[in-house]
């Protein structure tokens, strides 16, 4: 469904963030992207919807090649890719409802969106999504009145109302406490399963990634160092991705926690 061919990004400073990355993600698969800071995780997902322009290489979404599209066609394809951000990136001075509806911006014209005249179907869908994530009462609150976990749920609604085929998720739990982190990860993965969405989730918490996803990709210095099921992340692999460290505790903790959760 999504495939990357020799995707390369070199920043103007000369930093090579991505070195000819090849990747294939089938329909409905949830993938975790792990790696140390500066490995190019964030650049990789931003190159897919071209918030960052790739230097070379191709991005295929279905049978459409994204990286050569013009501005209008790119906007249409961006509608098929929902994005969830690290610090939620909600427009803080707008209400929760406006934030959710902003996910439909690619579908409605400028004046309709400016006057907040969204089609009734969009409004119904927004309420359904807010109900699904348990924030129906918050609809008319301003986004900056919400807690971190609540904001991220709004962010999820905004991505889903686009009716995407693919979710790009950038460090969804980086600014949340451990319990909320898990709830958010679980919610994202459940929603992906319900709707048959594929997702790429950037995440630095290896244990959390192992708990929820079917496939893990390890990135280091812009190259894929690991690609396989979560239980393939043995200490040797983690050392290869992150460098020397005692990994046993990390992995064991996960297994124990999983038992505890079940």
């Amino acid at each position: 469904m999504l495939s990357l061919e020799k995707l390369t990004k070199t920043y103007r400073t000369g930093d090579q963030a991505l070195k000819a990355v090849d990747l294939e993600i089938p329909e409905g698969q949830v993938v975790a992207l792990i790696g140390p800071s500066g490995a190019g995780k964030s650049t990789l997902i931003r190159c897919i919807n071209r918030l960052v322009e790739p230097t070379s290489g191709k991005v295929w979404l279905g049978d459409i090649e994204i990286s050569s599209l013009g501005a209008t066609a790119l906007r249409q394809q961006r509608r098929r890719m929902g994005m969830i951000f690290q610090e939620y990136a909600l427009v803080e001075r707008l209400t929760v409802m406006e934030n959710v509806l902003s996910g439909r911006l690619g579908y409605v014209g400028f004046w309709k969106s400016f006057l907040r005249r969204y089609p009734q179907s969009d409004i119904d869908e927004a309420f359904r999504l807010l109900d699904r994530v348990g924030l129906l009462e918050m609809a008319d609150k301003r986004a900056d009145e919400l807690s971190g976990g609540q904001r991220q749920r709004v962010g999820i609604c905004r991505a889903l109302i686009q009716n995407p085929a693919l979710l790009l998720v950038d460090e969804p739990t980086a600014s949340l406490d451990p319990k909320t982190s898990r709830q958010i990860m679980r919610l994202i993965c459940e929603l992906c399963a319900e709707r048959g969405l594929a997702a790429i989730i950037n995440i630095h918490d290896v244990a959390l990634a192992q708990m929820f996803v079917q496939r893990v990709i390890g990135l280091q210095f812009g190259e894929i160092k690991f690609d396989g099921p979560p239980d393939g992340l043995v200490p040797e692999v983690l050392t290869q991705i992150y460098g020397e460290e005692d990994w046993q505790a990390t992995i064991r903790k996960v297994e124990e926690e999983e038992e505890a959760v079940e």
Binding site: L51, R78, L105
Partner: peptide
């Protein structure tokens, strides 16, 4: 805050939106 702008861009919004 640039990330808010980025988030709106990612939805497929036009320049004016």
């Amino acid at each position: 805050d640039h990330s808010q702008v980025e988030a709106v861009t990612a939805t497929g919004a036009s320049r004016w939106q």
